[in-house]
Design a protein around this nucleic acid. Sequence first.
DNA 1: GCCAACGTTGGC
DNA 2: GCCAACGTTGGC
Length: 162
Amino acid sequence: MASTAPPTDRPPRYWLMKSEPDECSIDDALAAPQHTVPWTGVRNYQARNFMRDDMQVGDGVLFYHSSCPEPGIAGIARVASATRPDPTQFDPESPYFDPKSPTDRPRWLLLDVQALRKTPLISLAELRAVPALAEMRVLQRGNRLSITPVTDAEWARILTLV
DNA sequence: GCCAACGTTGGC
DNA sequence: GCCAACGTTGGC
């Protein structure tokens, strides 16, 4: 039977994904065809494994702007594909080129992210001011992961802020 | 530009 | 497998 349902029937999970707005902002993603962009450039094994093992089509995404004048949550998105090899790892012209990645066994993956809407920016300071979000991964000291899980409760609380 | 935190690399 | 050196991230 044909279906547009996600590949499994598990409930959606939620994620926060960091993007430098100079490279791909929420506006860039919304301007892309189908509002969808390939999430290139993940070069951390833990983040890769989240994509490969835990993220599924339909999962919710907090689109986070990092390394910019106003870091924070800038929009809502969804996971829009399964993983596939990230072509930039094989492109010597790309800043994400990885000469150690074997072409027959690509080390790095990406998936598509579909932007759903832009939100008023929720700054780090605003996030930190919400007691219910105190345990959020992205707010923990020294956190550098570009993809982090978001709990159901954190997701629901953030949606009340946007 | 600073610097704390963390991941990766590579010699042993 | 240890661990020091190094590179990167990312807020400030």
